[in-house]
Design a protein around this nucleic acid. Structure first.
Lengths: 362, 362
DNA sequence: ATTCAAAATGTGTGCGCACACACTATTTTT
DNA sequence: AAAAATAGTGTGTGCGCACACATTTTGAAT
């Protein structure tokens, strides 16, 4: 039932004014050395903890954070990220948080660059961004550092950068897990394909780690004699070309019994080749709980989905910036999110969780 | 860039004083009907949202919430729940939250009752409890309602009660998922055991649902001809008796190829019968990321664990009470937590998540 | 018409803190 | 030696709200 210690209490105990205590607490202004020591001692003695509420109220400043995401109405995955961001913003707006959203074309590095420029132009107090394109992201990092704007990365990491935090998955381990899941019910000597349906301009490090994890898993189980094929395909939005590509793939690998789709586009191959995949009993493991994937999961056409927790990424990302900018707490440099294994039987609860992110966390 | 609307803004726009607006907002005191309408209209027009920060600061009241948990130093599962509670308390203490923890003996209904009595005695503003024993929990519910103390349930639900919220898993679906996981690599015609290592005095509803889900899963797959055995055993803390019980079980079911342990005690059967279980390749599915289970998971002796998110249960539970008591927001009556599927390859990230619950959510 | 209680409304204070400003004592500059 | 700069400290105000209290208005009773 002990009362919380206030600045006033410290002041009276140390025989100084609240102003001096304030100066000690914030390292501002001049304080005689002996006085500083005395005050610090009292602070320690009484176990003072700043009242965040009163502090936030008095601080009374707007913090503008720019978010840089792919156009959310095009991509369902990024829409979820944005939902997490909006939820976090809502819970932090009382503390003066102001989110300034920017959007760029998913596949276009130039659009990314141009939008990044605009974001820098408003000189925000912080930036949240998935560094999707290597070169362009590096430009952004340099610009941030030139203006001393802290930034956090979500979803993908970038080498040679020093963000306040990276929030996302452990790519390597997600590859390992993908392999493990694909391995269920996989016959000896089967062929599996690691399929990357994405633009080649995208940041590569992410993918390389994922592949490595995937391959390492099977490499540690040589007895099963699994054959790994790696395929990239850029024109995933062109049904004809995708069809041709997949037809080739299926034809040239008659023993193919599993596909690991490295991103959220698993549904695209089922959209086109549902029948042969079901008939040949090819297992599919993909990522992300977007509606299209969930439908196939529900119909037992996709065996597993790995949830990347996009909403949490956004939520935690913004909170991390807040902690860095306002609470001035230290923030963990790397915040790995769980690798949720989603099957038909537990999918509903993750979907629900996304919808109530604000509730749970606010 | 628009400024937040304050009570003062509403007052001036509606030609009244801030006091009147306050009265309208809180339904206190008398306000002329036409004035009330005018004020409400302006509130709506301007889209006023209460500033939680300032509100909390001015409110300046302590909220005492009593938590009622099994002794946390005995049971690792409940220790995690308690960690979530403590984390939530820490993040809410600035708003005047005060957690008063009470603990009872895990297996003893009388201890539960006695502790409940003590908790009621201090007349807290809210109570958080897993209603583990039917009769005793009902006593507590009645006492709460007599004193108009709101309560939330975590972990297990209780019929005929009206908590502010239930936070936990969907028991039925956790049974379904357990069956699904056990079914991996289960040969046709195999026998599986649903094993309940718990005291019979415990709330039964929970378990019945779980069993039903488990059985329904296999019932929908009659082709596999799975034989389901159900076993209860109370003396799980007596190694000799447990050994005898398990020896009988294994002996009388030579075809046994899977065990679904309905709580966190999967490790206990491996502590005693690790060798025969490994040799006969019996699959084990259990619950909860407690150290003992994680060890066996890591060694491939336990195939799957289902995470009940105990820390989240505590965290969300306390936040729900806060929302009910302070923010006066409506709280969802049932908050199902995800059924995390944990294997060796993704365990680390859930363990980490538990450790940083306060970070992520605070 | 006067009195008076109830209804309706306005005013003031404090929550704990951040920060601008005022003030004094001391040192430096000219 | 006077003026100016600087170090060191104290005071006061406002953030937006909750709530106690003061004040005015209204309508009924005498």
């Amino acid at each position: 039932m002990k009362k919380r210690v206030r600045i006033k209490d410290i002041a009276s105990r140390a025989n100084v004014s609240t102003g001096t205590v304030d100066r000690v607490l914030h390292n501002r202004g001049k304080v005689a050395d002996d006085v500083r020591k005395r005050v610090l001692q009292v602070i320690d003695e009484l176990g003072y903890e700043r009242n965040l509420i009163a502090s936030a109220l008095a601080y009374n400043k707007q913090i503008r954070v720019a978010s840089l995401l792919p156009l959310t109405h095009v991509d369902p995955y990024w829409r979820q990220t944005n939902q997490g961001l909006v939820a976090a913003n809502k819970s932090l707006q009382h503390y003066g948080m102001m989110l300034e959203p920017f959007f760029f074309d998913y596949g276009d590095p130039r659009s990314f660059l141009e939008t990044a420029r605009k974001a820098i132009e408003i000189q925000p107090d912080g930036i949240l961004v998935p560094p999707m394109f290597d070169a362009e992201a590096h430009w952004l990092v340099d610009a941030c550092e030139a203006s001393a704007i802290p930034y956090v990365f979500i979803n993908t990491h970038l080498e040679d950068a020093n963000p306040v935090s990276y929030i996302g998955q452990d790519s390597y381990q997600s590859g390992v897990l993908g392999a493990r899941l694909l391995n269920f019910g996989l016959a000896e000597g089967g062929h599996v394909c690691i399929l990357n349906l994405d633009y080649s301009t995208r940041a590569a490090q992410h993918l390389i780690s994922k592949e490595k994890g995937f391959k390492d898993y099977f490499a540690e189980r040589p007895a099963k004699k699994i054959n790994i094929i790696r395929e990239d395909f850029e024109d995933f939005d062109d049904p004809h070309r995708l069809q041709k590509f997949l037809a080739d793939l299926l034809h040239s690998h008659p023993l193919l019994s599993g596909i690991f789709v490295t991103n959220s586009r698993a549904y695209k191959i089922l959209d086109i080749f549902e029948k042969p995949i079901v008939e040949r009993n090819i297992k599919i493991v993909g990522f992300d709980l977007i509606p299209q994937n969930l439908q196939y999961l529900h119909d037992d056409k996709i065996n597993f989905l790995i949830n990347q927790n996009p909403a949490e990424q956004g939520f935690i990302g913004l909170h991390s910036l807040f902690k860095h900018l306002v609470s001035k707490e230290p923030v963990e440099k790397i915040q790995y999110l769980p690798l949720d294994i989603v099957v038909k039987e537990n999918a509903a609860y993750y979907v629900k969780k996304m919808e109530t992110t604000s509730m749970v966390m606010g």
